[in-house]
Amino acid sequence: MQIRVERLRVRHENFELRVDNLHFSANRVSALVGPNGAGKSTLLKALSGVIKPVAGSIFVDGRELSRLRGSERARLVSYVPQEHSTALNFRVFDFILMGRSGYLNIFSPPARADYEKTEEVISYLGLEALAARKCQELSSGERRIVLIARALAQDSKIILLDEPTTFLDLKHEMEIINLLRKLAEDRGKTIITSVHSIDLIPRLADFLVMIKNGQILSAGPTTEIFRAELLGTLFDYPLRVVEADGRQLILR
């Protein structure tokens, strides 16, 4: 499933984001990168339908996102926030089960099919040991995985993630990166994620969108635009990209 953005303008908390034309291909991992406050999260929230654009359109496989009902939208696009709110201390299983809400009538609790989908996701991600625990007992790495599990239970072709690896240690960071690649390659998901540390991008993303001051600085295949000059301009800091072991590395 692909996403097309046309003449989009989004306003969020005294901030305006403008995207004239942007296209995310199906079954790919796309990364949004840029300085803090550039508009990455705002773009993700607009793409997920959480905030409505002031002007312009977002098309998911040709269907305009803002015209869809909430439940229809939830079956197409899921959104993984950085942290889930923890007002109530749900069990991990019930938390993942919430991904099924878009398939439920307002007065119906989850049914057998929803439980089965949740169990399938739990075994796919190997989370059996966590399922009976409470969300507030989890480590930050476990919480990120559980949030991704909820998005998988939502069973949408498109998954949007807001900096899913920030504050994680190296092992958990790599687990998430590998999982996102696997989801795109094996499960045919279209992944769009904002990324804080640019070092990860060559391993993670097929497609790169550079955002600065609420506008797109550059967008294209990672192999083409992951360049020192562009990245330097993006972050206002001189960088070097060197190659070692066939991989691109950033030197600051």
Binding site: G70, F90, D94, S101
Partner: peptide, 22 residues
């Protein structure tokens, strides 16, 4: 009958909306 919805609404508004709730 709204017990399940109330669970989902206890998440942040952004999350509840992205899960398909009005």
């Amino acid at each position: 009958k709204l017990g399940w919805r109330i669970n989902v609404l206890s998440l942040s508004d952004d999350e509840a909306r992205s899960l398909g709730l009005a």
